[in-house]
């Protein structure tokens, strides 16, 4: 260590931040992991076996993964075309798209979840619009439904899909598409063999961001679907804040942690394979 510091004195500047995070973040996380496999002072996986042998737990895991997948899919469906449009847009159109992405990012999640409570009501904007368009016959409530939760969550997370894809797309040379066209490639062939592969690293990063955030969201399901529908994150929060069942909470927290770390590691490996710098 001292030899290391003597050969790289500037590295000393990084020490306060690294020590700080090691102490305030690394040690607590290690403690959480350690406690989840300790029962009464000895090593035991009892917490996990109890959790995974309960059918309710599998309902909760299913709820979590299903909503996260739905949110990710909706974000990709809306985010990819928007990133493409942003990469092509100039002037006022570009400014409008950028504002529409960055402004909601700067507004807190409680504000947005509260807004969706209003939007998804029986007399809310969506209900009114769908009746106006003739898609619905009468007013319906989307609040406290899974569809409502997915739409509201996708709204909060879609910027995290658009930005990574945009950051890859803006570096793609537009002449590549022209070159492919000159060589006689059809539009569909160009999209699937030229444009899509080049943007794949951005798509992978976006999916990983959105999926892991949707897995661990807490405020949005609390406001948009309520207590009857539990996800891993809401169950974790509730077992600490209301149920005082810290054994269960530690177990679900570790399951949540494993999913998030798994998604991040897998996406890093995938985007490296697709030749992405990120």
């Amino acid at each position: 260590m001292t030899r290391l510091l003597r050969s790289y004195p500037v590295a000393l500047l990084a020490l306060p931040a690294i020590l700080y995070l090691a102490l305030i973040y690394g040690v607590p996380l290690a403690g959480l992991l350690a406690r989840s496999v300790m029962v009464g002072g000895t090593f035991s996986l009892a917490g996990f076996t109890a959790f995974f042998s309960d059918t309710f737990s599998w309902t909760v895991i299913g709820n979590t993964l299903r909503t996260a997948a739905g949110v990710t899919l909706l974000c990709l469906l809306l985010g990819y075309p928007t990133a493409l449009a942003l990469a092509r847009a100039t002037g006022a159109a570009q400014a409008l798209i950028l504002v529409a992405i960055i402004l909601p990012l700067s507004v807190g999640v409680v504000v947005k979840a509260f807004a969706w409570q209003i939007v998804l009501r029986r007399d809310g904007v969506i209900s009114q619009a769908l009746i106006f368009l003739g898609i619905w016959d009468g007013p319906q409530r989307l609040l406290f439904t899974e569809t409502g939760l997915i739409v509201g969550a996708a709204n909060v997370f879609v910027p995290f899909m658009i930005l990574p894809i945009y950051s890859v797309l803006k570096l793609v040379d537009p002449r590549l598409g022209e070159a492919a066209a000159t060589l006689g490639a059809s539009p569909l062939y160009r999209f699937f063999r030229v444009a899509l592969p080049l943007s794949l690293p951005g798509i992978v990063t976006g999916i990983a961001f959105v999926f892991s955030m949707a897995t661990s969201m807490y405020v949005i399901p609390s406001l948009l679907i309520g207590d009857r529908f539990q996800t891993l994150a809401t169950l974790t929060g509730r077992s600490f804040l209301f149920m005082r069942n810290e054994q269960l909470g530690s177990t679900t927290a570790v399951v949540l942690l494993v999913i998030s770390v798994g998604v991040v590691v897998a996406s890093a490996a995938l985007s490296r394979r697709f030749g992405g710098a990120s």
């Binding site: 973040y25 607590p28 996380l29 406690r35 994150a233 600490f240 998030s260």
Partner: peptide, 15 residues
């Protein structure tokens, strides 16, 4: 990159 709730619980117990 980690769930905020998990960090919160870990820090709560450590503090």
């Amino acid at each position: 990159m980690l769930p905020g709730l998990v960090l919160g619980i870990a820090m709560l117990e450590a503090f």
